[in-house]
Design a protein around this nucleic acid. Structure first.
Lengths: 343, 343
DNA sequence: ATGAAAGCGCTAACAT
DNA sequence: ATGTTAGCGCTTTCAT
């Protein structure tokens, strides 16, 4: 057992020497074994085992350019929504033997920029991104330089970018229409940064639904903008939401993740849901139905969203320039947190 | 609109030519700008901008060996527990400008092996791993070849591996002791694969607690082993758990993630929690307190666990061989799902 | 079937 | 202060 802690890793060079062949032959054993004579091949393979040879993926990538890693830039990996999307991505990529580097921006544009830069430098196979703002310039630049970019959970504002999205405007409209149906007329919307495309689209959908019902958003809707769409932020927003002489009878949350925080704060203050206030979330995360107030929410095909995005990334890396925009449909799932009609 | 899709990326070579300097100078501008004359530097920087120069991280890594990516191999990224751990890791790594590649094994040893191989080939800066089984051999090999390995949420069975863990045996004991206190004597344990260290340790703790109370585990405990510790698996296990002439009065779940599935199935079958059966989880995930049956659970310092692991990884990569084993203490949080004593 | 040699883009030592 | 050059480990022609 050779004690060799700090020894440099063995490369094909050492393997070649040990097997008494040239490095070219070792390379062939690695990449096209069928072209090497059986006896030679076995000798080389034995040498590899003995020297604990581990191929250097970095050198390989430098040679032929193609990375074996893709990057995903999301808003918040701790949000159960993204977590499920990430599983969809991972599973599809794994089939192509590609691993996934995940980065959370928390909605901050400067962190987004830094991650984009790092990933491009790292030579990733492609980038999946839920952007923190609508500014495709940087993304188009990156793509022009040869790194496929796919917008994740966000419709592309240009035909030159692939995207996989769910119709958020429709989702917002489904929610508000449901609440209006149930008689609500003073409604709060706890939103994330409106700079973030999803947040903007859901807000737009809510307003569209209001106007479609002949109601003035300015009169019936109060929107609160969180610094980032997290449970903690949602929790902290509740006092503000409930303040004033005419508190809302319903609260729409931009995500179930935010809704969780809202429900927590509501519970702590002893505000009954849905008795005193109705609550609606968005995403239909796994625990939505098991909460003390089973949460009305907008379902989205999360896992499929991830798979589809990975699919596009992979096919784009292969085939070249085809740009596809995929859109899924959301669906409202009514549960007790908002089921009852009010006076 | 320059149509130049497939153009090769510009490297320091092109920049040098455009700025009329040598590639060495360009490299200096990149790595020690202060050594370059101001006017030259500005000329080079302008050329970089004009040519949209993006440094090639792969080439750089090949040169000096150090990767800018770390790998984390976890059981299931969709489990909210890991998700929070992952955020802790990411945040610490980001300070050192290192990104994180996340891999989910779903508890399958063969997937673990493949990911280990891929990460090592990729030249990662280090590997954080929640192993699917207790077999440190492979990990020690990898570490000997120069890649730091840190066990994540798992105590090291050898002094040669760094680890960050929470005392799972104690956690299991806290849970069972609490239930015995409340009068429970027929208890089910819905566990994950016992091959997985955490699952084994929690089970051991439960049994230890039973024996400490002078009770025979064989008589009072029924353990069900899930193929993997997920909500769906937990949901499917409920019929089996409830079968037989003497169903349990309490169900311990190996994680809140599993508990969620169990609660869902229980709710669907109309079994009241905690009325007919008490339920205890493990991890104290964010939604635990807001469930329809606020869930008794074992709290763990998830985010800190991740940070500490990343810290070790980073310091090991720098300093060399110091091996540290960090252990955190769990804490039982009693909520309604198991608060009441039974007849 | 196998070997020799030219880079991939960059850094760092050394030379000027 | 700037230029020159030798690799990092591998794949891939092109010879033999």
């Amino acid at each position: 057992m050779p004690r060799q802690s700090a020894r440099r890793r063995n490369g094909i060079r050492e393997v070649a020497a040990a097997a008494g062949v040239s490095i070219g032959t070792v390379s062939n054993v690695l990449n096209c074994p069928e072209v090497v004579a059986t006896s030679t091949r076995e000798r080389v393979e034995r040498a590899m085992r003995e020297l604990e040879f581990v191929p250097n993926g970095v050198a390989r990538q430098l040679r032929d350019g193609r990375g074996r890693t893709a990057g995903a830039i999301v808003l918040d990996l701790a949000n159960p929504f993204f977590t499920e999307v990430a599983r969809g991505i991972q599973d599809r990529l794994a089939q192509a033997d590609v691993t996934l580097t995940v980065c959370s921006t928390d909605g901050a544009p400067d962190r987004e920029d830094r991650y984009l830069q790092v990933l491009e430098e790292q030579g990733v196979r492609g980038i999946l991104i839920t952007p923190t703002r609508m500014r495709p310039g940087t993304l188009l630049d990156i793509q022009r330089r040869g790194v496929p970019v796919v917008l994740l959970d966000c419709p592309s504002p240009t035909p030159d970018l692939c995207s996989v999205a769910v119709d958020d405007t429709l989702g917002g409209e489904l929610v508000i229409t449901h609440l209006l149906d149930r008689g609500h007329r003073r409604i709060a919307f706890v939103n994330g940064p409106t700079r973030v495309p999803q947040c903007a689209a859901r807000s737009a959908g809510v307003r569209r639904g209001l106007r479609a019902a002949g109601l003035d958003p300015a009169e019936h809707l109060t929107e609160v903008e969180l610094p980032s769409a997290t449970a903690v932020a949602g929790e902290q927003a509740v006092p503000e939401v409930l303040a004033g002489p005419h508190p809302p009878t319903a609260i729409i949350c931009v995500s179930d993740w935010v809704a969780l925080g809202v429900l927590r704060a509501l519970g702590r203050r002893g505000v009954a849901v849905p008795g005193e206030v109705a609550v609606v979330g968005y995403d239909d995360v796994p625990y939505a139905a098991e909460l003390y107030a089973p949460l009305t929410s907008v379902w989205q095909p999360k896992y499929e969203l991830g798979r589809a995005a990975a699919e596009l990334l992979l096919s784009k890396a292969e085939a070249g320039h085809r740009c596809t925009q995929v859109t899924f449909e959301p669906a409202l799932i009514v549960r007790e947190s908002s089921a009852a009609a009010i006076a």
